[in-house]
Nucleic acid binder design. Structure first.
Lengths: 190, 190
DNA sequence: TCTCAAACATGATCATCATCATGTATCATA
DNA sequence: TATGATACATGATGATGATCATGTTTGAGA
């Protein structure tokens, strides 16, 4: 039951996509290789033709989620508003992999951590480039502090079993970030 | 091999303590019941005399870590400085359970999430009470935003395999928080 | 077209755990 | 001080899941 070149590439893509969603929804350990393959429309047997191990899959799926998005600058305040939304809070499987899997990745393979580190670098670059007009150190500091606050707030908001508290965490963190955004684009530019 | 009343209580305490450390170091799923019992100086057999299940242990251990600390007010800036230290970064097993286990707890039992929610309430109360002199909404906002930033920064810092980037995240987030702390005690009080 | 190896399916294997079953020593109570 | 209940140890059990073994089909180069 051999398959065409393109089909192989397509299958690999599907596996990575399924893995990304399942990992974000249930965590690395709770997801089985067989589940991932099934979600990709295959059976467990073919897995080791694509990846050397589950750890290998984890690293590849993380890289796909975190490095692929690229580095186009994004404006801090609108990004934070989207990030700290209830829509995002309810969408673990399709949401930010750092908020979902960051803490678990600390205990994963060096390759997995390397992917996350690269993603962190890019995210800081994206966000600091997205606040033009401020001094470079200022915008970098705002990017780092704001990004940390976003990730932390999403975790806290999802953790809470009280919807009001959860909403409050999102809204207040958003305000906290916006209050201090350095040099909003309207006021000064380059 | 029955044991005295106090010994039983002491054993239970030891189990919870061992569980707290092991969970923070390796995550809920990677730690086995037998490992916890061994770390507590017992064997796996006695476990179900103390807890109904591993899930039950997880909830109890979280409550112990997160609710027990109490609600004494703490000043925001010094707290953040201690929290965002390299010492804390390197001490997963003895450090903040929210940064370590928060994301995983989202998928745990309702009791576990309830413990975390209660811990979050108390932490917000502690931190906002620790910034006297500001308007109540202001200090609450600062508490929430700063706490989110602390938790997120610790995760990002631990994630990074680049020590310089890791240090930068801690230092910049600390500065980010301090810049914004409303009404430092020296300037206005009550 | 012919041949071969690749890609996947099916069906083991083997280790790891959570949890249960049973025995025993000893605390606690009468 | 007897006596029973209990807390823990030892030793199953049964399920799960990562990984491997093998067979079959068919894409792709000759």
């Amino acid at each position: 039951m051999k398959v065409s070149r393109e089909q192989v590439a397509e299958n690999r893509r599907r596996i990575l996509e399924a893995a990304g969603h399942l990992f974000r929804e249930h965590g690395f350990e709770a997801v089985t290789v067989a589940e991932v393959m099934k979600a990709a429309g295959l059976t467990h047997g073919g897995f080791y033709g694509h990846f050397a191990s589950k750890d290998d899959l984890i690293a590849a799926a993380l890289a796909e989620m975190v490095v692929a998005p690229g580095v186009e600058p994004v404006a801090l305040a609108p990004y934070a508003a989207r990030y700290l939304s209830t829509v995002h809070r309810q969408d673990c499987a399709g949401g930010c992999p750092v908020a979902d899997l960051g803490a678990e990745t600390i205990r994963q393979s060096p390759k997995a951590r390397a992917a996350m580190t690269e993603g962190l670098r890019r995210q800081i670059a994206r966000l600091s480039a997205g606040t033009p007009g401020a001094a470079p150190e200022e915008s970098r500091r705002a990017a780092i502090g704001s990004w940390a606050a976003m990730v932390g707030a999403m975790i806290l908001a999802r953790l809470s079993d009280d919807p009001d508290l959860s909403d409050e965490v999102l809204a207040e963190t958003r305000a906290f970030i916006e209050e201090r955004a350095p040099a909003p684009a309207a006021r000064s530019q380059t």
